[in-house]
Structures are given as C-alpha cells and as structure tokens.
Design a protein around this nucleic acid. Structure first.
Lengths: 119, 119
DNA sequence: ACAGTATATCAAGTATTTTTGATTAAAGGA
DNA sequence: TCCTTTAATCAAAAATACTTGATATACTGT
C-alpha cells in the first residue's frame, strides 16, 4: 500500500529532514489525492461523513444504499489518500473526514461542501 | 462532449435563474474537475503552462517529451474541465491556465504549485 | 461454545481511461 | 501549386479502475 504523505509536507517543499522534495514526488502525492476525489460516490461519502461527524461502515452503507464491500473499497481509497481517518472499536470501524487535510487541499469555498452547516 | 460549468455557478448553490442546484449535479461537476487533476502528466502540464504563461502544443510537446496526439488528448481533458483555456491563431493552438477556476477549486497553498514564482 | 454481526479482502468480470500510430484538415511559405 | 507544419481525431490495444458476490477474520451477546 502506498504510504500517506500529509499535504503540509508537500507544499512546504522541504520535508522533516530538510531535504527538497522533488516535483515528481509532489505530483505523485497530488495525483493520489485528486484520484480519490475524482469520483461522485466518494465525494458523496465525504459529504455524508462530515454531516455524521463520525460513522461506521454499516451505518454509512444504509445512508448511501451501497453494498458493504463496495463501500469498504471506496473508504480505503479515501483513507490511503489521507482524506479520512479510521478508528477501530471492536468490530466497528469509525471513519471521519480529515478536515485539516481537506483544508490544505481545497479552496475555502469548496471546503464548504464538506462542512456540516453550509450546502 | 460534457459542457463546462464554472465553479462559481456551483458553489453559489443557485444558478443564474435562481434555481437550487441539486447536490448530485454539483458532485458531477466536481468529479469532472478532479478527474482532470487526477493525473501526474496533466498536473505537470498545468505546471509548465503556468511557467510559460501561454504555449502551443508543439512547444509543450518538446518541454514534456510527449507525442503530440497524447498531449492533445490530455489538453482536451483539462480544457473540457475548464482548467485551461485555448486560443487558436492560424494553425497554432495556444493554451493557458484558467487561474480563476484553479483559485476557486484549490487551496491557496496548492495554487502555489501553479504560479510562476513559487515551487 | 455458539450464533450473529461488522468489516476487510479476494478473484472474476465489467467498464473506463490511456496510449499508440495513423489519418485528416487546415494554414503557411517557397 | 506543392510541400511542410500544426494540431485534432480515430480505432485498436493496453492499462487501470470499479463492481460483484463470496469468503475469512475478528468481535459481540446469549
């Protein structure tokens, strides 16, 4: 599995050990993040997750009317891209939007789509 | 071909005729835009375009070392998503980044990747 | 221990996207 | 006019991504 690199580390242009991050690896990271966003179903999952604040797969599965295996597949893509986080409690997996990451990536007006209050 | 809808019309939540834009059609628009960004080659093309300010296909083709037909294919995807604009002069097609659209879509720090000066 | 629930993963099939090389059309210059 | 350049499009092949249904694992409650 591809390792999740936080956006802050990419936009800063230098990583923790003060080395320049080459353009190529920046583009790879962005590609993965935009790929994760490049799907209506996943955008809708993000939208639902924000409104629920935190939700397990089975609850989401009913909200979005999507078979469990399909939902897990899409959640994994969002997770690997660092756009959501996962916390496991017993057999349940609770997913949450990684707001900080979304804010680093998207414009304020677009982030709005992923906030509880506004449309 | 899918019609380009400016982001402003989507984030405003109402269109010109004051009708609510349903979530579904917003998500469709975003999906198209993120799909266009979800590719290393296209991100690099955007990056080059910003630095050149304006460039024709043949010049870009040398900069990026990519066959012409492939480049035209990717440029069309960016164009259809409204992320770049095209101006034809004789046999030449000059492409340019649609800065306004990029600014509406991406965070200020990310937009930085698509500005002449910074990284 | 047993039955039931939650979720991840797998393999196969399907669909979509990308690449490639060729062709076409339109414009410029000798 | 004829040759060259520019760039869009096309069709086929190759590569990716998504869907589906089944299976496996781990936990819950009785």
């Amino acid at each position: 599995m591809k390792q999740f690199i936080p956006l802050t580390d990419v936009t800063r242009t230098k990583n923790a050990t003060n080395e320049e991050i080459p353009l190529q690896s920046k583009l790879e990271t962005y590609e993965a993040k935009f790929k994760a966003l490049a799907d209506q179903k996943r955008l809708y999952i993000l939208h639902l997750l924000v409104q629920q604040n935190s939700s397990c797969v089975c609850d989401l599965s009913e909200l979005i009317d999507m078979p469990q295996s399909k939902l897990s597949y899409h959640l994994k893509i969002l997770l690997d891209a660092g756009l959501i986080t996962k916390e496991t409690k017993g057999t349940w997996s609770y997913y949450q939007v990684n707001t900080e990451e979304i804010n680093h990536l998207l414009s304020p007006e677009l982030c709005c789509l992923f906030r509880p209050s506004c449309g």
